[in-house]
């Protein structure tokens, strides 16, 4: 099999994940896009490990071992991420990352200084 097939597929999946992370507004959809990016990296690792295990005589199968580690770390990441999202939802009543602007610069002293307060009141109501 040509090595370009899995490499191009993983590049496409990674860029799909980049688009999702940048364009989505719901925090859980952003987490889904992060999963897509991690899976693209996994596909690259597996493809190059299979290629290297044929060409090199002595191989450690480092690509597949790293893939397993990535899968485990992704599972831990999704657990912690969902716990954070649920905590934010209980505090604010929303999982919309465009509305979480407490640490944004220039929004409390700016011309639209009352917009975060209004959003906060709406969120806590």
């Amino acid at each position: 099999m040509h090595l370009a097939y899995p490499a191009v597929l993983s590049a496409l999946l990674f860029c799909t994940g980049v688009y999702g992370v940048l364009a989505r507004r719901n925090a859980i959809l952003v987490l889904m896009s992060v999963e897509l990016m991690l899976n693209a990296v996994n596909l690259n690792l597996v493809a190059f490990d299979v290629w290297l295990s044929r060409t090199a005589e002595e191989t450690l199968h480092s690509g597949q071992a790293l893939t397993l580690f990535t899968i485990a770390i992704a599972a831990a990441e999704i657990g912690i991420g969902l716990a954070i999202v649920l905590a934010v939802y209980r505090n604010r009543g929303t999982s919309d990352i465009d509305k979480l602007r407490d640490t944004a610069e220039g929004h409390e002293s700016g011309p639209d200084g009352d917009a975060p307060a209004a959003e906060k009141a709406e969120a806590s109501a």
């Binding site: 099999m1 040509h2 090595l3 370009a4 490499a7 191009v8 590049a11 597996v46 493809a47 490990d49 299979v50 290629w51 295990s53 044929r54 199968h61 597949q64």
Partner: peptide, 18 residues
């Protein structure tokens, strides 16, 4: 990626690599 690996092939014959 295509420019770098256009002459690279994965040999899938033989025992499974994984």
């Amino acid at each position: 990626v295509v420019d770098a690996f256009r002459t690279t092939w994965i040999d899938l014959d033989g025992p499974a690599a994984g």
